[in-house]
Write a protein that binds this DNA or RNA. Structure first.
Lengths: 163, 163
DNA sequence: TTGCATCCGGTACCTGGGTACAGGCTTACC
DNA sequence: GGTAAGCCTGTACCCAGGTACCGGATGCAA
């Protein structure tokens, strides 16, 4: 397992989990910076597998859960939906996933490249705007106006799916 | 006005708008690849200004509306919310917007740079996955596994706002 | 002037990604 | 054993960004 979470020693008396038992929802939520409800939401969505439980039914998470949540958050910020993340994680846990994982990775690279290209284009435009050559988004009076970044971006969703 | 829409001659008998009157909702929607409802939604949201009307109350859009919709769609794909787009467009139409527009552009550049950095990081990871060095997202057995792209991405939303 | 496509406003609904709340049970320290 | 923090399930709600549907009015060509 490569996702090694940094499990800090618990601080308050309430937050100390018994040795070896696992992290409680509050601990995981705090360390990962997410809401407790979000943990259960992710469990429902299949992003987190069902953790073990205490005798009383409280969830006890393995310590690498925090790192996993960071993976999820990073992937989300990069434009992957929760379904895609779930799928990727699921794929990553199967027996001989190599070919499948590779294929998904190849597809994702194309998407990522398209996004980078779009962002780079708009970044260029923004820079030129900052360089005071533009005074308006729609009524710019400057000569060789950079604003029509309109033409970019059509590659991000090549299949025509809405953004 | 720099947004020059390519106004194709109308094709069917139903879709011919009277000369000079402007484009009808259906024409705009079709040419821009959006739903008619979306046009009215954007109008409510302030992204499209209220078009002129026929005597009977039907909307008649200026021809550059199609190009404007392409701007909106491009900006959206790049992670701008409709509110942000509306604000930018609005700013662009004011009397002396230069300083304001520049400031917004500067702020956006930082965001865009962060996103590009994130995407570049994940792209690298994906490439390495494709290079067959990884067989799993969460249980990879390869030596110097690239998968913890977990650490990236925290710069995209520096103010802690959710993704 | 009829007939059909299109458009109108209004309202309700949908998906994705969460959050909040209620009412009750556990945990853990004293 | 008492007590407060924390957790449980279930359900409802929120926001963004659209979409769908309704009953009725318009546009326009034949």
């Amino acid at each position: 397992m490569l996702l090694r979470a940094v499990v800090r020693p618990a601080e308050g008396r309430m937050m100390i989990s018994p040795d070896k038992a696992g992290l409680r929802t509050g601990e995981v939520a705090e360390q990962a910076g997410v809401n407790i409800q979000t943990l259960r939401y992710y469990e429902r969505r299949g992003l987190l597998s069902e953790p073990t439980r205490s005798n009383g039914g409280h969830r006890l998470y393995p310590p690498d859960t925090v790192a996993l949540l960071n993976v999820i958050k990073a992937a989300q910020r990069l434009g992957f939906t929760l379904d895609e993340v779930a799928e990727l994680l699921d794929t990553g846990q199967r027996r001989h996933p190599t070919a499948d994982l590779r294929q998904r990775a190849i597809e994702k690279i194309a998407e990522v490249d398209a996004k980078i290209a779009d962002l780079t284009a708009i970044r260029t435009t923004l820079s030129e705007v900052v360089d005071a050559r533009c005074d308006s988004l729609t009524n710019c009076t400057c000569a060789d106006c950079p604003i029509p970044f309109l033409t970019i971006g059509t590659a991000t969703h090549p299949d025509g799916e809405p953004a």
